[in-house]
Design a protein around this nucleic acid. Structure first.
Lengths: 337, 337
DNA sequence: AGTCCGCGTTGGAACGTTCAGAGCACCGCC
DNA sequence: GGCGGTGCTCTGAACGTTCCAACGCGGACT
């Protein structure tokens, strides 16, 4: 057993061919005669040859590594969403011969500084951006520097035009309303976030449109709609207020945190308030909270598709914008008591 | 503005020195005359030179990248622990010029297969292992192949001898008991996991020893100790049983999931049962659950210390085993009503 | 008969870095 | 004046891969 690494050269020597032929067997098999291929393959197996990614990267300029910023840890319960996305992304990447490399940055500006650093020094091929938001300068920077990337979250800035994957939040809250109406609820409140969050507006819009379809008028909708910062305590307080003010029999929430607060109030009061959360976090499963689940595995998979379209040039005319439908996970919190 | 990448060669040309001198300025400054250094530095800045890690890696065989397996997503609430560790690890690594690369594997065997793959093909420098357990073959494999690594979690197999960082779970549950006794509680139950988890035994032992110190005898302790699989529902059921059987006024739990179950029972019953959880997950903060917090940021930092000791040979005679003390985060769930 | 082409294969060059060895100028010393 | 040493710098080689131009060869076309 030789201790030194097997290289193209050593494999070639053993198979009685040239370096380049071995390389072709691996990268362009159609160029090589079948019997030669067999001989080379045998030599590869015998020596346990694996290509050196460092050398390949030096020569080709590609590393088959994508970068992802790990966001500052969230206070709430909702951080779990990105974790599951990250997990799915890592698996998708691995299955296609890519790797995920992490970095952190406290804000967008320094995230961009990290792009620069990583591109110059570590030769990353691409980036996956999460948590897009208004006045997001990151996409523009990457586009300007011709770096392939995809965002999880649609661009909220008109000027931005790039591949993205997102989940249709409005469809999620609409499904929640329809589910509740099927159960006989009519006065369905909405616990959302304050203005300024596009994701929040999207989810609120789904609820509002479904309620309008159900025949409710704007005045009632305004009374049924509470806007509070995310959090369990905030959700609890807000639901008390809405209950007193508009007497809903059910409430749809913009997050599981808010929903958990609402659920706690409902349960301690012994009231029959039905509650639906958003994101289907582990907590929702744990406490029996009906929640809108994002298809994170598929989102990660599709995001990688869009990335590889750019990197390997395969893709063709596939759409560069993917909007996925969430689905409702029904649990005890919305069942008729 | 030239579009081609700045290299040692182009910097050298501009500074009027040789390739190697530029390299020395960066890697062995003591070999270079100060005025030469200045000239070279100016050229580096002017050209925006950044060393190519691919080339460096090809030449030196090191990549300054550490690998970490992303575990399958946890069902429960406790998955957040590793996320926070991952975040801290990424930050620590970044601060020292290292990067974290992810991979996934469904079990230990295939994790080892991934080690092989990553080492051969991607030239990783080291690994960080999490969730050590009995009959863990991973450490032995890595040691046998001379791969630097560190574990987050102590080795539960006597034969294993390698650098590790862990949190003293027994100290955590002991602190929980002492906290509760200070508040006047005497009959303090423990909700733990079934046999077979070393982490679980460690946490149970802390509770037991503190209770023995408090003068309780073995017979009572056995009645106060429930063993159930992790989960909110399981915790709720178990605490009902223990309440009926041994009438505790407080309960220490092996996880926040169990504690959340216990807390739900306590609150719906309106009973004065004090509850302490473990891991200080976001859920604990959200619902006001007193919990034992692991110092994850420090754990990650120390883990990287141990890794760099092996990689850069600096370290010296520092200890290779680090046991950190957790601390109690006091919230409403343990306060006297 | 000569030219062209496609097929399978080859060797040289290049990617950008670090290592090893050597060179040069200058110093102090016998 | 020669000798060893020290401080600083340089050139060639090597890491392992892929790109490029070229090769020999047989068959098909002019």
């Amino acid at each position: 057993m030789d201790t030194t690494r097997a290289t193209l050269e050593s494999v070639a020597a053993r198979a009685g061919v040239s370096r380049q032929t071995v390389s072709n067997v691996l990268n362009s098999p159609h160029l090589v005669r079948p019997e030669t291929t067999d001989r080379v393959r045998a030599a590869i197996d015998a020596l346990g040859y694996r290509p050196s990614s460092a050398a390949r990267q030096l020569r080709t300029g590609r590393s088959r590594v994508v970068g992802l910023r790990l966001e500052p840890v969230h206070d709430g319960i909702n951080g779990a969403v990105l974790d599951r996305f990250l997990h799915a992304l890592t698996e998708s990447a691995q299955a296609r011969g890519y790797r995920v490399m992490l970095f952190t940055a406290p804000d967008d500006e320094r995230e961009i500084a990290q792009y620069r650093e990583l591109l110059d020094t570590a030769d990353l091929d691409a980036f996956v951006l999460t948590s897009t938001h208004r006045h997001d300068t990151r996409a523009a920077w990457l586009a300007e520097h011709d770096v392939p990337f995809v965002t999880f979250g649609r661009p909220w800035e008109q000027a931005d035009d790039h591949p993205w994957v997102d989940v249709d939040g409005a469809a999620g809250t609409r499904a929640a309303v329809e589910h509740l109406r099927r159960l006989g609820h009519e006065r369905i409140a909405y616990l959302g976030w304050p203005d300024g969050s596009d994701v929040g507006e999207d989810r609120a819009a789904g609820w509002a449109s479904a309620m309008v379809e159900a025949g409710h008028d704007g005045a009632l909708l305004r009374r049924l709609h509470a806007r509070v910062p995310d959090g369990v305590a905030a959700g609890a307080q807000a639901v008390e207020r809405v209950l007193a003010d508009a007497a809903p029999t059910a409430v749809v929430c913009a997050s599981d945190s808010l929903a958990l607060g609402a659920l706690t109030v409902a349960r301690t009061r012994g009231s029959a308030l039905a509650v639906v959360g958003f994101d289907d976090t582990p907590v929702a499963a744990a406490v029996g909270l009906t929640s809108v689940a994002q298809p994170l595995t598929e989102a990660a998979h599709r995001a990688l598709d869009l990335l590889l379209d750019q990197l390997d040039g395969t893709g063709g005319a596939r759409s560069r914008e993917v909007l996925l439908a969430p689905h409702l996970v029904e649990r005890a919190s919305s069942r008729t008591p």
